[in-house]
Structures are given as structure tokens and as C-alpha cells.
Design a protein around this nucleic acid. Structure first.
Lengths: 132, 132
DNA sequence: CCTTTGGTTCGATAGACGTCGAAACAGGCG
DNA sequence: CGCCTGTTTCGACGTCTATCGAACCAAAGG
């Protein structure tokens, strides 16, 4: 669903440097909107902080007072926003975050982090395209 | 509306370090949701990148094919999320961003930026409380 | 004062979103 | 094969949200 964030945002153009184009803001907003829900944000955090960098859906469901389908729905939103990837291994489905995306978002927000690797365009101006 | 982000998120706890609590995710999601709209994201960018660090509403209205009330509504959402502040000076109302908030969000996203000032909790563990 | 211009609030409406239960799909395992 | 568990899809429903026009408030000048 989300094409390549770097391609749209120009990789690490801070929000405060120059106005976003309509296209850029649309793509970026898609990602922020995915994070604009408490459940999804918590899911993201649970996956990101889970041992091994990945979490099974069964681990996530028990944390909330929500039905299975609802959790699955939120995971799908996060997946389509490019924030996480899911992989089925046997019976269970494991999700892991895509740190590059978080790095990019972080870089967009902050005016100019001096020499943090998160803002060094060098080693990741080509992100894998995520689809569906 | 938004209390103190730092107080809730614990100031700079990265998303991937430990799972967010229900409360933390709720507060954070409020901010991300405010940014989860193309118009608002563009407004934020227009204000942040405007000369002098502030922009008059009259500057913002012309950029969009939207009615005045709609722009005003979006500005209110950004304001209540704590992302911008508005001040009336004479005839016009000027908006400016709150960079601390953007810094904090950036810090929450990235696992551990080595020595970027954006992630140094030292000089800003006390943020001004924004209300309405 | 009254008018004009800039911005916000109000009320209404169409569409999007979160949630659920039921049903469908996918793998193990008797 | 048939069942059982884990996960996703489907359809529906109530709520929230983006948008508008109309009305309203604030400041500046006649």
C-alpha cells in the first residue's frame, strides 16, 4: 500500500525545513494515522520491544480486552502502513517492526539531528518497497 | 487537552525498549492522530518552515482548496494536541510550532540515537504544560 | 457607532473508522 | 481424513471526523 517513504519524502527532509507538498503530506499522514490509535501504538511497541524482535499474534491478543478480529484488523493497518511485516511459520504468525521506517519518521520530525545515524541518508536511500 | 507528554511517556523512552502502557499509548496516539491527516501535516510543515518560525492564518488558508472554518478546525486539533500554539496580535492570529514536542516524538520513535541532543533527557525533563 | 476584514464557533451531513460475531482459511495432529 | 487451534476475512453497526455554510466574535478604521 505504502510505496517508498524515502522516495516520497525525499529521505530525511525535516518537516520544518520546507513545506510538504500535497503528495508528501498524504503519504506521511498515512503512516502517522496508522500510529494514531492507542491499540495500534501499543501493538507496535509490544512487537518492537518483544524478545527476538518479533512477536506472535497470540502474544498480542491477550494484552487487550479486544476480540481476535479486531487485533488482526489493527495489525493489518500497521502492515499496510509499512510499519510492520508479518510472516507465518507453521501454526503461528510472527510480526516484526521495520526500524528503517521509524528512523525515517524520526528524521522527518526533528529539525536537524547533528550526526545521529538515524539522519545519515548514506546507508539507506533505497528502502525495500512494501506492498500489501 | 494534552497534559505533559514527557510526564506520560517518561521522557524519551523509545517505543522499542519496553511496551507502552495503556495510558502512555493513549496520550501518544492523540498526538500522532493529530498528525495523521494530510492537511494538518501540511499546516504543521507550513508553520514550522515559515520565516520567523510563525505563520498567520491568512498565509495558510490560501494554500488549500478548503473553507476557512475547516482550516480553523484543523489548527484547533493541532493546538489541542500540543503541537502548535496560537497568539493573536492585532488583527491577525499567528501560529508557531512547539519544537520540544517534535523532539520528544522523534525520540520515542528511534531505538537509541547515540548522542543526538534530541534524545538527551538532561535539558528538558520539564516541559511547559499546554492546555486547550 | 457602523462597516469591513480576519478567525472562530455552531449545526448539519456524508463518509471513514473501531468494534464485534460469524464465517472462512491454514496448519498440525489424532 | 476429520477435528482443533490460530488467524484472517466478511458484514454489520454505532461512533467519530472532515467538511461546509451560516452565524458569531474581535480588532481596525471611517
Amino acid at each position: 500500500m505504502l510505496a517508498d517513504l524515502a522516495a516520497v519524502v525525499g529521505c530525511c527532509e525535516p518537516l520544518a525545513r520546507e513545506p510538504l507538498s500535497a503528495r508528501q503530506s498524504t503519504e506521511l499522514a498515512r503512516v502517522f494515522k496508522a500510529m494514531g490509535d492507542p491499540v495500534r501504538l501499543r501493538l507496535l511497541s509490544l512487537i518492537a520491544s518483544h524478545a527476538g524482535g518479533e512477536a506472535c499474534v497470540c502474544d498480542l491478543t491477550d494484552v487487550f480486552d479486544l476480540s481476535g478480529p479486531t487485533i488482526s484488523h489493527h495489525l493489518k493497518v500497521l502492515r499496510e502502513a509499512g510499519l510492520i511485516t508479518g510472516e507465518r511459520r507453521g501454526t503461528w504468525v510472527y510480526y516484526r517492526v521495520r526500524p528503517e521506517l521509524l528512523d525515517q519518521l524520526s528524521a522527518v520530525l526533528v529539525p536537524a539531528a547533528p550526526d545521529s545515524p538515524a539522519t545519515m541518508p548514506a546507508d539507506r536511500d533505497e528502502l525495500p518497497v512494501v506492498d500489501a
